[in-house]
Design a protein around this nucleic acid. Sequence first.
DNA 1: TGACATTGGATAGTTCGACTGTCTAATATT
DNA 2: AATATTAGACAGTCGAACTATCCAATGTCA
Lengths: 214, 214
Amino acid sequence: MYSMWMAELAARAGCSVPTVKYYLREGLLHPGEATGATRARYDETHLQRLRLIRALTEVGGLRLETVHQVLDDIAHASSWHEAVGSAHTRLPGPFDDEAPPSAESAARVEAMLERQEWQLAPGHPQARRIARALDVLDGLGHPVSDRLLDLYAAALRPLAAYEVHAVHDVGPDGEPDVEPSVEAAVVGTLLQEPILLAIRRIAQENVSRRLAED
Amino acid sequence: MYSMWMAELAARAGCSVPTVKYYLREGLLHPGEATGATRARYDETHLQRLRLIRALTEVGGLRLETVHQVLDDIAHASSWHEAVGSAHTRLPGPFDDEAPPSAESAARVEAMLERQEWQLAPGHPQARRIARALDVLDGLGHPVSDRLLDLYAAALRPLAAYEVHAVHDVGPDGEPDVEPSVEAAVVGTLLQEPILLAIRRIAQENVSRRLAED
DNA sequence: TGACATTGGATAGTTCGACTGTCTAATATT
DNA sequence: AATATTAGACAGTCGAACTATCCAATGTCA
């Protein structure tokens, strides 16, 4: 396998040598193969890992500590579903403080989940986030209707089915080799979010322009 | 109109007095009405503004400088559509550096927009973001298919229509008073994003669990 | 073979954004 | 009048993510 010194690794990953050293120190990147007291060689696994770290931080907006945890989740994945779940709970979002949502909002989210026949452990972080978001929007005088929640759910349902099947099919054929597809799932969840949001904004602008042009 | 000293304002907005002073210094919050050399009174407009600032930073993840620009956009909005557009370009996302996307990805985004019959100024930031995201995902070995882009667009199209009409209807009946509905649009775009993303994750987890339970 | 740039590792310093603390003179409140 | 607050100025803090400096040991080329 092709191997290189740190300088080349850093250049190919698009970051500086001190930054690579920093990631090594923090345990985000596995050490290279030492070829002497002051030398080590790095290979494509290091390059791949560096690219993943930078994508998760720059695109996904994750903190390095979170990247660490997510990488551990991916590495220790025993089953696909479980790994995706734990990675999801790790992925940050707003409202990661401990403040509980109002009972009203929590109930509205519960009701939405039931209408969709979606099951979720009670107190699930995603449900809490939605409820807290509803609270904040209410407080700003821009409440969100149940109808909109249902529209979101209805729109995302087929999308999610397609996305999950896509990574699943490429993934474990028998059972082994869970890791690549778990990485695909985490990457897919997190790094496709900007695409989804950008398309939403484009769609809104187009609707808005058509309304303005009458 | 009800007015209060800074201490009460801070308490009601859920932040500290020094923080309010900081926002005043930075020009994010308009000064209170001075009642003497060392006193000033604040009213509900200050409270509303503080809540908006905190929602945009904490939920939307905006930096204070960006909040400043977005608030200016809202304040100087001459038309609804234009304001939404400029606010959208200000809202941050990944890839806000100047690096251009690959020609291939740019072309794929163009093609998707044409398939949707969406118009967009060339070099539009949202389109650039999508193209750059495609590049990054390609580089990680997790390419995004055109089919998925189309599915995203198809799923978000009716959502966007509903969302825009919702704020538009509440908005300018004749023509005046654009500002409240522009705020609604910006808030709606940005602060509803966490809800959308959380619902997507929940949907994915449910699909994933069903696959695991067979 | 020997000069010299480079490397890995350790440690300390920098930058940025967002606050937070302290100080002072002036003003409410009791 | 005594005491507690306040506005405003300004300096200090904090965490995250680097970045710079040293050093001794190597690799490389003349």
